[in-house]
Amino acid sequence: MSSTSDKRRDHSCISCGISISGTDAAKFDCPECGTLIYRCSKCRKQSNLYECPDCGFTGP
């Protein structure tokens, strides 16, 4: 069960670090370990690399 603070927590783009709250961001599971990853629309459009903080998987 999620707490209220978890529901309101701001998330950041894994590539550039900006807050994605209220933006057209993507949320997906890491292909290797399943960790939740957030990316802003600008980084997705530019195919900026990201690295999973848990397993080190790198993707565009």
Rank of each mutant, 00 (worst) to 15 (best):
M1R: 10
S3K: 15
T4N: 08
T4A: 12
D6H: 10
K7N: 04
K7A: 07
R8Q: 11
R9D: 02
D10C: 09
H11G: 12
C13L: 10
C13I: 05
C13H: 05
C13R: 03
I14G: 01
S15F: 00
S15E: 01
S15M: 02
S15A: 15
C16Y: 00
C16F: 02
I18G: 00
I18V: 15
I18W: 00
S19N: 14
S19H: 07
I20M: 04
S21K: 15
S21D: 11
G22W: 04
T23F: 05
T23V: 05
T23D: 11
D24V: 06
D24A: 11
A26C: 10
F28Q: 01
F28H: 05
D29F: 03
D29M: 04
C30L: 01
C30R: 00
P31E: 08
P31L: 06
P31N: 04
E32G: 03
E32W: 01
E32Y: 01
C33Y: 08
G34R: 03
G34E: 03
T35M: 05
L36N: 05
L36V: 14
I37S: 00
R39D: 04
C40F: 07
S41K: 12
K42G: 12
K42F: 12
C43S: 08
R44P: 00
K45V: 14
Q46I: 08
Q46H: 08
Q46P: 00
Q46A: 13
S47E: 15
N48Y: 10
E51C: 12
P53L: 08
D54S: 14
G56P: 13
G56T: 04
G56W: 02
F57E: 01
F57G: 01
F57R: 00
T58Y: 06
T58W: 04
G59Y: 01
G59K: 02
G59A: 10
G59E: 09
G59L: 03
P60T: 12
